[in-house]
Amino acid sequence: MSKTAGRPLRADAERSVRAILAAAERVLAENPAASMEQVAEAAGVTRTTVHRRFANRQALIDALAAEAVSKLAEAIEDGHPETAPPLVALHRATANVLRVKGAWGFALGPGLAQSEQAARTHEEIALRCTELLGRLQRQGVIAADADLEWVRRVFYALISEALHGGGHAPRGGREYDPDALATGIIDTLLHGVGPRAS
């Protein structure tokens, strides 16, 4: 739950903050230089309401990044990386991550400076990912001598390319199937692009 000055927000204030953050993602994705006034208009609230919740534009962007990273962490956990069969967990977590990254493209973009809290959450996500890849390695799905940190980085790059690359990538709000993309990403990660043994 969002907090102001360490206190939990009332339900109406919480709804207001969520509306502002959702509007900020939409507006800033289209125009990274957009003002807080433009965010307020998109959220359907007054400029005063935005300023009451966020001291300045940077505070709004920090809160937006923290919210998006929190959604990303939830997406990973929803894949049950410790308890589901590893390939099932990897597919589900990948599809979930694609959905979140597709919805929070600005807040999770590579050019956005991360708050300390968001950076810590990213580190936790990387650790969870490496642990899941370790489960796959122990099952023989990933080569025993593979460097799991490198595998994780390749996995991240495939996700990024699927979302932000040219040509076939889903951009500008186009519809895409996260499950199908997840299948392609995992297939490429685990089998590469060489010919398959018959």
Rank of each mutant, 00 (worst) to 15 (best):
N31A: 13
S35L: 02
T48C: 02
S115A: 10
A29D: 10
W104A: 07
A63F: 04
P86Y: 04
R26L: 05
A24T: 02
T46I: 06
L60G: 02
G79Q: 02
N96H: 09
A23N: 08
H51S: 13
H91S: 12
V97K: 12
A66R: 10
I76E: 12
E30G: 15
E25Q: 11
V88A: 13
R53T: 04
A42N: 00
R53K: 13
S70N: 11
T46Y: 06
Q117F: 04
Q117K: 13
H91W: 03
L98A: 08
A29P: 03
L98I: 03
D62H: 08
L112E: 12
T48N: 12
H80N: 15
A24G: 07
K101P: 04
P85F: 01
E41I: 09
E82T: 14
F106W: 04
V27F: 04
L60C: 05
A65T: 10
Q38M: 11
E77A: 15
L64F: 01
R99Q: 12
R47S: 11
D62G: 01
T48I: 10
L28N: 05
A113G: 11
E116T: 10
G44F: 01
T46G: 14
V100D: 08
E82A: 15
G111N: 15
L60Y: 07
A29L: 10
S70Y: 00
Q58G: 09
T83R: 14
A113T: 14
A103S: 13
I61E: 15
M36G: 14
E41V: 11
G111L: 12
L90A: 11
D78P: 02
A40W: 00
A63I: 03
A113P: 09
L72M: 14
K71G: 12
R26S: 11
G105L: 04
V50F: 07
E30W: 02
I61H: 04
L60E: 07
A59M: 00
D62K: 06
V97T: 15
T94R: 02
A65F: 01
L64I: 03
E41S: 11
L28M: 08
A59E: 13
A24W: 00
L90G: 05
I61G: 03
G105V: 07
F54H: 11
A73E: 15
D78Y: 00
L72W: 10
P110A: 13
A113R: 15
A93K: 07
A119E: 14
A66M: 05
V69R: 07
L98S: 05
Q58I: 05
A93Y: 01
